[in-house]
Nucleic acid binder design. Structure first.
Lengths: 238, 238
DNA sequence: CGTGAACTTGAGATTTCTCAAGCGGGGTGG
DNA sequence: CCACCCCGCTTGAGAAATCTCAAGTTCACG
């Protein structure tokens, strides 16, 4: 069941065969969600972990008057409410596309984590990488132009999807609307739309039908001032 | 030595007496830094943890052309390079004020973490709270006005300093310059200055001589659309 | 008393926003 | 099978927040 999760965790730290087995024998129930369904909402104190087996999701929070901020996108293989193990949810996670989600009871997860320090470390490391991604988003929202922010986001999603083995021919699924992009980047939809046209016009990307197609990687990287280090993708585990 | 760290970790999870002892008997060397000194810089793969025993610090990254983004402020008691245990540093941490920093070798720390799952969890939880703070900053930079962002930052620093026992008479140390504030909030110094005058003019705060004085808490909260939940300060551990 | 960093102020320039409206395709009820 | 509707995308145009440039002031410190 959780093979995708094992792959993801293994990318975050060396796991022994026993660690593998422990994860794979975790009790799981699987459930499907449609695009736009909430996987978990602000204020919840969950008793299960949600693992994204397939599909994409996003974290977000909405202010009373409707202003929304998207804080992260999730790619298959990731636990999208890991903080729920230790904290009450302070934001909502919603399906961006149709998703298959594996539910793992916290009690079982806790037992594995306490008995297998390497697994806990791997999960911890994955939260640390998420933090690094957040910081990079801050860099963008605080100090980059709309154009760079959009290009940067595309670079990031593309690389993370590739790491999950979900890029083919420089294409990957990314069914975000322009409203999603705007809310992720702190822009208005109108402006996002205009900048998107610019990027398309320059032949850097195509972005239609829920699919991102990178036509000119180095151009896109340059436009986004993108440096992949913060994703810690290939770093040997330390 | 590490009593402050123990306090901080204990706020993040129940620790047994043995856990306490394990932390307190960690080997430590202490060092002083002046304001503006780097505690650790981007690209480092440290072999020690840095614990802020006193003073404040901030995380930041600077783009080639000089645009700087501050991603977090640190308050005494926090480990300011916890991610260094598992990751190469992707940003720099610099002293905001004069600091006293305790250095703990990773080998020793690792041993304690593996032998004491509750300690690892507490440390992990503290990274998760840092993430929550990052998300709140994103909310601000993406969707709040300059005024709300500044007020919000003051609320946050004030509450975190209070949690560390460092507020007296509604005052706490916060020796950030207006340039620091600007770089943390994604604003220009000029604009920061003007908004600051506004907040002062309304009698919400005073902010001089490296000291923050909250004159009207509820007014400041309102101006910042501040809701303290994301700090997870009083939450019972889960 | 000189110097530099931090803070202030003025004023014009930009980016980005808001409001408003039109377009287009897919999905649905009649 | 068609008409309608809604959501997402696009465009236009004026408005607002914020930025940049430039210069002056203040204050702590040597």
């Amino acid at each position: 069941m959780l093979t995708r999760l094992v792959e993801t965790l293994a990318r975050h730290g060396p796991l022994s065969p026993e660690d593998h087995d422990a994860i794979l024998s975790l009790p799981v129930t699987s459930r499907r969600f449609g695009a736009g369904d909430d996987l978990i909402v602000e204020g919840d104190a969950p008793s299960q972990c949600r693992v994204l087996e397939s599909g994409q999701a996003f974290r977000h929070r909405t202010l009373p008057d409707g202003r929304r901020q998207i804080m992260a996108f999730h790619v298959p293989g990731e636990i999208c409410d890991a903080e729920g193990l230790l904290l009450t949810m302070d934001h909502t996670v919603t399906a961006l596309s149709a998703c298959e989600v594996a539910f793992v009871p916290h009690v079982a997860m806790d037992a594995v984590l306490d008995a297998h320090p390497r697994v806990m470390r791997a999960l911890w490391r994955s939260s640390l990488v998420e933090s690094a991604v957040s910081r990079e988003w801050m860099m963008g929202m605080g100090r980059r132009t709309a154009r760079a922010r959009i290009a940067h986001l595309f670079c990031e999603v593309f690389l993370r999807m590739r790491a999950a083995g979900l890029v083919e021919n420089n294409r990957c699924r990314f069914p975000a609307t322009q409203t999603h992009l705007s809310d992720a980047l702190g822009l208005s939809v109108v402006h996002t739309n205009r900048v998107l046209q610019e990027l398309r016009g320059e032949g850097l990307i195509s972005f239609r039908g829920g699919e991102l197609n990178v036509l000119n990687w180095s151009g896109l990287e340059a436009a986004g001032e993108f440096e992949p280090g913060y994703l810690h993708l290939n770093a040997k585990h330390r």
